[in-house]
Design a protein around this nucleic acid. Structure first.
Length: 621
RNA sequence: GGUCUCAUAGCUCAACCGGAUAGAGCAACUGCCUUCUAAGCAGUAGGUUGCAGGUUCGAGUCCUGCUGGGAUCACCA
């Protein structure tokens, strides 16, 4: 089971090498390349050294300095036996004289900061404005499978699942935008001892209760009996211990555990009554999950059920034995020795011939590759399973699977509560449905307080509350580097101000308001060929131009947090522009049109970026 | 105990193959709504980047050791 019942962190397995700078893509590529070519020529002309343009990395200029692109001169000081400042000055002079895009420069210590001419910014913007699919990468002709969610059917989804689902959905969308062909899959763990526990408790204490009769959502109903099982089981264990049995033994000998195990065997043997109950309860859970997924706004292209796949993989054991990758022990169990790779020996098949988790995953990996012949396959699973996936991927390599090199474990960190870890058995889990509902109520209260729903129909208001709630929640969970553990405080974590989803949504809504007014006044958006730009306008064009690159980086690193940061950066930059630069009060019609066009494009990019996070942006709020 | 991983402002997080004076948001304080949405903008304050060494022109970032969290090391999944 992918998500153990408790918590879900990350680990870099094979990130691509970072050989690029911040500005290699799309429309900004020409600009960067021009500067790099200029630098290479300058180094050759002024100092007589040959360095290929691609090695001359540029970085964005820090806010407090003048300029947009910075070249670091220190590395060449030793080689040229000249001071970094001298080098920077010579290079700057050469660039302003020979590269039309570079309008000015300044050298601070060893940093050469370059300013770009307004005509170049406008040219860049015109290209962006005309690009209807701005941000969409060219088709790569590479298939990627993204597996995420992968719940157990014995209880409802919780906060940890939310991070998993939002991450998986977002990574899939980011990969699509960067040009991959993506298949989203969900592996539902619908069989095993966990569901048997729920089934047994239901049989004992359920009295025929159904979601309809009780008004309890199906997955919550199954969860109720899972908890009931645990409670009754613990009582039995205590009794046995009180009667003098060792705790460890009592945990194995408790009648309820025995019964659950017996039920699992009955299930495997196809006992009609057990199967009927299993079907009934699982269907309740599926229906419950569907509702939760709908609320979360996630979806899948293909669903695998563990009941269909748990027997797979045994033929791979045979294959592995033949290839000498695995070996059989005298008790008939099958193992792989990974000590040469710095790992341990790992069981891949029990002595009684039945599968373990690893066996199933071996089989499932082949099945996935058969169904969707992919070059990359991402598993969105918590970092507690780092070891499992390390082993799984290593085995696939040793077996010579062609897709093995593309296997990637998107290993994300646990979500901690202020009280520490979530423990379902201790009742300290934050339920996904409850949390989403509370967020919506908070969004409603906040919106009403601000008096922002004048003229909204009931349906529109409801949709707004939902979008704000999910925007706040998704942004909160996605803005953090997936690899890192994070803290969630239900009382105060999710805010509506500052670096939050609603802040970005708000900026989009404001722009829509501007665009409505522009339409009313008949101001057509357009990019002028030349104009003197405000600093805020240059900042906006620069930030816009970074979007395709950020998508590419986010895809390469499987990291929605890069998109979240970008969306905030863009919204914040616009917010400054909004408060500093008048639009309709501008007298020059060309400038007015330009600012409307700029606003329109920013709104569009905010919408697309937030879409990558699974967040819907409202037109009014 | 072995292996892996994390530690940055009071709190939650950034910091782009090692680059400038380590940045945002929240919380605190100060200004700004008769003018395009104040869920906003501008500003003040807040740091020995867990500790000690090392490499480097340059270290939050790389290396070693230490301290303190977390994960994992099942014929569980």
């Amino acid at each position: 089971m992918r998500l153990k019942t408790e918590n879900p962190k990350p680990k870099t397995l094979h990130l691509p090498p970072k050989t690029r700078t911040f500005a290699d893509y799309s429309l900004s590529m020409n600009l960067t390349e021009q500067i790099q070519a200029g630098l290479a020529a300058a180094l050759q002309q002024e100092f007589g050294i040959e360095i290929s343009p691609a090695e001359l990395l540029l970085q964005p200029t820090k806010k407090e300095f003048e300029g947009f692109y910075t070249f670091v001169c220190f590395p060449y000081a030793k080689q040229l036996k000249k001071s970094p400042v001298e080098i920077g000055t010579k290079l700057g002079e050469y660039l302003t004289a020979h590269v039309p895009a570079v309008s000015a420069f300044n050298v601070v210590q060893g940093f050469l900061n370059l300013s770009i001419a307004d005509e170049i910014w406008l040219e860049l913007f015109a290209g962006i404005l005309n690009d209807e699919q701005f941000g969409q990468g060219a088709a790569k002709d590479v298939k990627v499978m993204v597996e995420y969610s992968s719940p157990n059917t014995n209880k409802p989804l919780h906060l940890g699942h939310l991070r998993n689902n939002f991450l998986g959905y977002s990574v899939a969308e980011i990969l699509k935008m960067s040009g991959y062909e993506v298949m989203k899959t969900n592996v539902i763990n619908n069989r095993g001892i966990h569901i048997c526990k729920s089934m047994l408790a239901y049989r004992l204490f359920g009295h025929g209760e159904t979601p309809e009769s009780s008004g309890i959502k199906g997955d919550h109903l199954a969860g109720k009996y899972y908890v009931a099982f645990d409670k009754a089981y613990k009582e039995q264990v205590s009794e046995l211990v009180a009667a003098g049995m060792e705790k460890e033994k009592a945990e194995k000998e408790a009648p309820l555990m025995k019964e659950a195990e017996a039920m699992l065997i009955q299930w495997e043997q196809g006992d009609p009554e057990v199967l009927a109950l299993w079907n009934t309860m699982n269907n309740w859970v599926y229906a419950g999950f569907d509702e939760t997924y709908r609320r979360m706004g996630v979806n899948f292209d293909k669903i695998y059920y563990e009941s269909d796949t748990y027997l797979l993989g045994k033929d791979i054991i045979e294959e592995g034995l033949e290839k000498g990758v695995f070996y059989r022990r005298p008790d008939n169990s099958v193992w792989i020795d990974l000590t040469a790779d710095g790992l341990d020996e790992k069981l891949v098949l029990r002595s009684n011939g039945t599968s373990v988790y690893m066996t199933q995953d071996l089989g499932l990996a082949d099945l996935k590759a058969h169904d969707f012949p992919m070059q990359k396959s991402v598993y969105v699973v918590g970092n507690e399973q780092d070891y499992h996936f390390k082993v799984l991927f290593l085995i696939m390599q040793k077996l010579g699977r062609p897709y093995a090199a593309g296997l990637y474990h998107l290993s994300y960190g646990m979500v901690d509560l202020p009280s520490g870890k979530m423990k379902s058995r201790e009742g300290t889990v934050v339920d996904a449905d409850d949390l989403m509902q509370e967020m919506k109520e908070t969004a409603e209260a906040m919106t009403r307080e601000l008096g922002k729903i004048d003229g909204f129909t009931t349906e529109e208001a409801d949709a707004l509350y939902h979008n704000l709630a999910m925007g706040a929640l998704k942004y909160f969970l996605l803005k953090v580097d997936p690899k890192k553990r994070m803290l969630f405080n239900p009382q105060e974590s999710v805010d509506f101000q500052g670096n939050t989803g609603p802040y970005i949504q708000y900026n989009h809504a404001r722009i829509c308001s501007i665009l409505r007014k522009a339409a009313q006044l008949g101001v057509e958006p357009a990019a002028p060929a030349s104009a003197a730009l405000q600093p805020a306008e240059r900042d906006l064009i620069f930030t816009l131009s970074q979007f395709p690159l950020r998508v590419e980086d986010a895809a390469a690193q499987y990291s929605p947090s890069l998109i979240a940061q970008y969306a905030y950066d863009l919204a914040k930059t616009y917010s400054q522009f909004f408060s500093e630069v008048p639009i309709f009060a501008e007298e020059d019609p060309a400038l007015k049109q330009f600012r409307v066009a700029l606003s329109q494009k920013v709104a569009e990019v905010i919408r697309r970026a937030m879409g990558l996070l699974g967040v819907t942006v409202p037109e009014r709020m």
